[in-house]
Each structure stands twice: as C-alpha cells, then as structure tokens.
Simulated assay, not measured.
Amino acid sequence: MKQLCLLLFCGTMLLSACSKNDKPATTDESTPDEQPATLVRRCAAADVLQEQLRKDPSLAARMARIEDLAARVEKDKSAYRLLPDGTILIPVVVNVLYRTTAENISLTQIQSQIDILNKDFNGLNAEFGDTTFGAVKAVVGIRFELKNVVRKSTTRTSWGTNDAMKSVASGGIAASTPDSVLNIWVVGALSGGVIGYAQFPGGAPATDGVVIVDDCFGNTGTATAPFNKGRTATHEVGHFLNLRHIWGDANCGTDFVNDTPPHNTSNFGCPSYPHRSTCAGTPIEMTMNFMDYTDDACMHMFTQGQKTRMLATFLTGGGRAGFAQ
C-alpha cells in the first residue's frame, strides 16, 4: 500500500512539464531501464514549483488540504457522494497562439483532441480492451465538450513555462472562467523542448489549465509521432485532476494511488511487457498507464484508484468543484 505523505506532496510540483529530447533529464534520480531511441517525455517542473511557492506562500497549505480530501475519499469512498459515470461535463476553451499558418491549427485538429479525451477517459480507446492489468483499469466517466476556440497571432518563436501565454500583458490569452472551464493553450513551441504542462488543483485561477505544443495536440494536422495520438493532453488533464506521475517523481516514489505498482522511475518509448520495477518485490510496471512517460501509442489506461482520486477533485474542497455544479 502506498502511504500518503503530505510533505512530499507539497514539495514535489505544482506544474507538471513534459519535454521531448534525445535523452532522459539529467535530474532523474535513476537511469530508466528503457533507453529512448528518439524523442522522449520528461519532467521539468522543479524551477517552476519553487517560483510558484515563492510567489504564493499559501499554496502549499491549499494543496495539502486537497490532498487530505483525496486520501480520505480513497480510504472510505462510502462516506462521500462520488458522482456516477457521465455526470461530469468539462467545457473546454482552446486558446491558440500562433506565429505561422501551420501553428494556427485547424478546428478539425482541435476537435480530434476533444474526441481523444472522451475516448481515453471513458474506456472507448481501441487499446482499452487489452487484458493487461484488466482487473484495475477504469472508465473514468468524464465528458469533454469544446466550448470555444480563441486565436491570437504572435511574433514569439517559443514560450517558456512561466505562464506568459496566459497573460494578455505578455502577449498571451487570458483564461476563460477557469473555475468551470478547462483552458488549454496551444503554442508553437515551448523552451527546452517542453511539450506540455498542467496546473494542479489549488493553484492561481489566472494560470489554471493546460499548455501543449501544437505538434503534440490531437491526431491530425501538425501532430507528429511519437506524440501524435493526443495522449499528451490526456496525461496533462490527468495532472489537472490531481494525478501524479506514476513513479511519484522519485526513485520508487508514491503517486498516492494504491492500485498502481511502484515504478523505479519514468519509462520511455514502448517497453516490452512484462517490464519489471527495481522497487521492492520487483513488481511489473504499468508502463501503459497515461501517467507514465511512454510514447502515445503505448499508453492506454487509468486505474480505479486514479479514477477515485480524479473524482474526488469535484467534491467541495477538492479544487474542481466548479465543474460539478
């Protein structure tokens, strides 16, 4: 059983960032067993977290309260009224910041991403029928609906992870009613090869949402392999709903979910099954989980524990209660 640790939770990350590069991040605590052959995802959030905590001393306490609620729900689900599958509808506003014609992605590409989110969160993706970890895989039961697309031309060739794309003053687009709308900013590029990041529940409303580069968004148009099946958004929306990376951002760390096996670190590419962890008991790792760092084509599931954790965010005090009204 994975034990809750509020201090670890507050000290890991507020924003989760993934990047594509030719090698794993040098900040990883251990070397992954599966070495990436081409582009990979990796976390780049430590500096962002420190800046968020510096600017908002109350952030750690807010996140700790949300984490405490999630832990109580996991321990005794009968004490909480979790909404049934299909009850939660998440309106989505896609904010497109483009420099070139290609970066001004089509409505078809945008809708393809919404369709993928609906499939991945509802067990409708083609890979969901895989019997691997079949006993714990979950239909989360959250629906997504495109509400609006906001477009803005920019001269920037790249954006950082300081949320400039979310501010009109810095050339970006302001969030639309973030308490009840999922804002996704699609940009041409992020510095350092980052492909996406998300804000966890508890952060500032003005910066709430998900950021993704256009060539990792949806499954058509500018979407490019190995991130051309829309799973970057699925992964980041998982963070938006309080899911941690499956390896807990530490060597054999915790993601605060009981039915995901311990991972010694992140996995890249498409590891062969069974891929065993070096953690105690050498469990088989859930490399196909959306919260690992494997390629889009090789991730396809959330677990029942992850479902409970996400649904807990819609309760009063969970950070996403505005979507359940």
Rank of each mutant, 00 (worst) to 15 (best):
M1P: 09
L8R: 12
T12G: 02
L15C: 08
S16G: 10
C18K: 01
C18A: 13
N21I: 06
K23M: 12
K23Q: 13
A25H: 09
D28V: 09
D33G: 13
D33E: 15
A37H: 11
R41N: 08
R41K: 13
A45S: 15
V48M: 11
E51T: 15
P57R: 15
A71I: 15
K75F: 04
D85T: 12
T87D: 01
V93I: 14
V94F: 05
A102H: 11
A102Y: 05
L107H: 13
I114F: 01
N125I: 05
G134M: 07
V136E: 01
R143Q: 10
F144K: 07
E145W: 08
K147G: 03
K152L: 14
R156A: 15
G160V: 07
G160H: 10
T161L: 09
A169E: 15
G172L: 04
A174P: 00
D179W: 07
D179C: 04
V181R: 08
L182S: 02
G188S: 15
V194C: 09
Y197R: 09
A198L: 06
F200S: 12
P205Q: 15
A206F: 05
D208P: 01
T222G: 03
T222H: 05
A223I: 09
A223P: 01
A225W: 04
A225Y: 08
G230W: 06
A233N: 07
E236H: 03
E236V: 09
H239Y: 00
R244L: 04
W247K: 04
W247G: 03
C252Y: 04
C252E: 10
T254P: 03
D255Y: 03
V257Y: 05
P271D: 10
S272C: 07
Y273V: 15
R276A: 04
S277R: 02
T278K: 01
A280Q: 12
T282L: 07
T282H: 10
N289A: 12
N289D: 11
F302M: 12
T308V: 15
L311V: 11
G318S: 11
R320D: 08
A324K: 00
